[in-house]
Amino acid sequence: MKFFRTTITAVTALTLGAAALPAKTYQLLNVSYDPTRELYVEFNKAFSEHFKKETGDTVRVQQSHGGAGKQARAVIDGLPADVVTLALAYDIDEIATRTKKFPANWQSRLPNGSSPYTSTIVFLVRSGNPKGIKDWDDLVKPGISVITPNPKTSGGARWNYLAAWAYARRKAGGSDEAGRDFVTRLFKNVPVLDSGARGSTITFAEREIGDVLLAWENEAFLALNELGEGEFEIVVPSLSILAQPPVTVVDANAKKKGNLEVAEAYLKYLYSPVGQRIAAKHYYRPIHPEHADPVDIARFPDLELVTIDEEFGGWQKAQKEHFADGGIFDQIYTP
């Protein structure tokens, strides 16, 4: 009898104790770039449910989207982001060096250079491919009009430019001169340089300017489905660049808000089977395709992909050589 009473007391105490510890609510701010909108809407919901089940605590994730450079500047200027999920490592490097809010070796903290998903650059052409565009060489032919945003203001456009350069250099047996000559001819065929990727998509789709749009693979798929069924098709070049949009926790911000563990769990969840499946659903190439729906994976065409580290020696070097003021891109337009 005594045993019974003790047990009851213990159970009551435990129950009361648990009730006295109220479930916490975390507010997480994820600062991201433009085309991840739809991806993170679904992922945030999945993560909140997962976290609630695991810990009983609630997480509310707020999202902020915009051009990657602009977003990075906002974080540098004090936007209290717990995590950043941007288009290029270069922008996150800048946050690290300018604010010292997380270590400079941030990219080694998560698998695959902190990129849970990747993408690439493909061509979007009008239905029936009237100009017969098949590969990069077709883009520099006279009379072909190419739409890309300005590499000076758009992260996506930098990937476009570097993909073209890598193709030409490979073809010429590694000659940088061939790369420079090719991008010069390519940009001579560009009639409008919008400041961001969405602007270029509008110029191509709504204003009906240009024969081919250089686009993120995920943007190209979105355009196929949302900008008029049957109006466009995707052309996959023989070689393109592996775009690695990285993610990281902004340690100092997260620590200050008591969010460090949640923020880390949030990014790790991107690598989980659920996170990988959601990425593939939104046209990002998951790094663990075995977790994704095979139907989603089948949509991704096979092509040779080069990386920025192997071909260009990393973002810092590429940025300085090609896109800084007075760099190779500027020289294309210097008379």
Partner: peptide
């Protein structure tokens, strides 16, 4: 050289930090 306004160049410089 053709249709860039000065405020755009200011933004361009900001994009390069």
């Amino acid at each position: 050289m053709k249709t860039e306004i000065t405020p755009l160049l200011i933004i361009t410089k900001l994009e390069q930090y």
